[in-house]
């Protein structure tokens, strides 16, 4: 059952990776990075179900909580107006 989920996640990783390396502007790459982060955090949660280990959920905690920091930093830089 979980193998089907991994196939879907595999396809999603390929598609968003394609946009990451193609994307015409930097903002496109940032959007692709954000999507990749969400997909990978889902991958971590489902694979901790696959490994059947409660402890491994802590890492997806950190992923879900902190991965938007880089997005905000890059968008503050793109916004311009740096003193």
């Amino acid at each position: 059952m979980l193998n089907f989920v991994f196939v879907l996640i595999f396809l999603a990783l390929i598609l968003s990776g394609f946009r990451f390396f193609k994307g015409p502007s930097s903002s496109d790459r940032v959007v692709a990075l954000d999507t990749l982060t969400t997909i990978i955090s889902v991958l971590l949660v489902t694979s901790s179900l696959f490994f059947d280990n409660y402890i491994l959920l802590d890492i997806s905690f950190v992923f879900a909580a902190l991965s938007f920091t880089s997005v905000i930093v890059i968008s503050r830089y793109l916004e311009g107006g740096n003193s």
């Binding site: 982060t37 802590d58 890492i59 992923f63 902190l66 991965s67 920091t69 880089s70 930093v73 890059i74």
Partner: peptide, 15 residues
Amino acid sequence: VAMTEAIIGAGLTTS
């Protein structure tokens, strides 16, 4: 190691 890499790589290095 995964947790360290996630925290340091996600926020601090990029910033």
